[in-house]
């Protein structure tokens, strides 16, 4: 029995989900009484393989093809590897790149696919725990199949430690270049502009609960009264109400202030990825079940339009009318 887990790197560095997937993969392999194999595709495969050789890894298959991720190459390489090693489980990270090949690989191999697992139980029928409705509920999905594909949510499993004694070997695959119909032309970083929210000690962060652009001065007023920096969740930036450099989260900035005040933010996983390391998290939200409450240290379950003006008053400011 084999569990095959796919690792991820970008611009010369292994990404953290690569080490988390070892932990998840080892759990799964133990449940299935299987070996854990890793796939390393592209870039400095030998250097990567050495670093990925942690406790619990049985074998590492490398494919030295290209410097950066290309989904056509990944799809072909993983499909070929799966055909050669016949894994019972294929684990892939639920990252932006993971979602760019995992459904294609599962399709090519005709494997059932469950994405964004936060937990699983593989003693007997595979039972996968997922979230639904923006994290308000959890679900269990059963997978009745001899083999399956699963993508796992980042930051749910700890990174694997220790040194392993995996067998590291190149996997021989010929990439069909005519089937590579996408090409990565480069990368660009979103500029940081006038403010750097990662430097702030106190962040007042505004979300969709603010409803209208006209209401933003209210939260700006709070930030001013506190001498804090203003940041936001994604929809505020998507709407063009604040610049991209204010966005906290997976595709924005990772912040670790002393105090993070989330005003009208639900706490979606991609938002939490950017602020869960804050020392103290305070949530102001009308919904007592909002996922942000799970990570908040303090909370006010009330309407921000009632609470924020009072707060501004407390600090000697005046709420915009």
């Amino acid at each position: 029995m084999t569990v095959l887990a796919v690792t991820e790197h970008r611009r010369g560095k292994l990404r953290t989900p690569s080490f988390e997937i070892i932990t998840a993969g080892r759990d799964l392999a133990d449940a299935l009484d299987a070996e854990l194999h890793l796939a390393v595709i592209g870039g400095d495969v030998n250097g990567f393989a050495d670093r990925l050789n942690r406790d619990g890894v049985d074998a590492i298959h490398t494919v030295a093809e290209g410097e950066e991720f290309n989904h056509d190459v990944y799809t072909q390489a993983i499909t070929a590897m799966a055909e050669a090693h016949d894994p019972d489980a294929l684990l892939m990270p639920n990252t932006v790149n993971g979602l760019d090949y995992a459904p294609a690989v599962a399709g090519a191999l005709d494997l059932p696919l469950v994405t964004d697992a936060v937990d699983f139980d593989a003693e007997g029928t595979l039972e996968v725990t997922r979230e639904q409705y923006g994290g308000k509920v959890e679900t269990t999905v059963d997978v009745e199949a001899d083999a399956f594909a699963l993508t796992i949510r980042p930051a749910e499993w700890p990174v694997a430690e220790g040194t392993g004694d995996a067998e590291i070997a190149p996997f021989d695959v010929t990439i069909d270049e005519s089937a590579v119909r996408s090409s990565v032309e480069g990368f660009e970083e979103v500029g940081s502009g006038d403010v750097d929210i990662t430097e702030a000690d106190v962040l007042v962060s505004v979300g969709r609960g603010i409803e209208e652009e006209e209401n933003l001065p209210l939260v700006e007023g709070l930030a001013d009264a506190l001498g804090a920096t203003l940041s936001s969740s994604r929809p505020i930036v998507d709407n063009g109400w604040l610049a991209k450099n204010r966005q906290v989260g997976q595709s924005g900035k990772v912040v670790t202030p002393d105090v993070y005040i989330a005003v009208g933010i639900s706490g979606a996983v991609q938002h939490v990825a950017g602020m869960k390391g804050s020392d103290t998290i305070i949530a102001i939200n009308t919904d007592p079940n909002a996922p942000i409450m799970d990570i908040a240290d303090y909370a006010i379950v009330d309407d921000l339009f009632d609470v924020v003006p009072e707060l501004i008053k407390q600090f000697g400011g005046q709420a915009p009318s």
Binding site: G135, V137, T139, V141, A296, A299, I300, E310, Q314
Partner: peptide
């Protein structure tokens, strides 16, 4: 082969201190 078998409210992991009261009290 993929079937939904249960849905439930996740056990709250929250240990947040919830300040109660009117807006001026909670703001205070």
């Amino acid at each position: 082969p993929v079937t939904l078998t249960s849905m439930y409210e996740p056990e709250s992991e929250s240990d947040a201190v919830v300040w109660e009261g009117s807006p001026d009290e909670t703001a205070d």
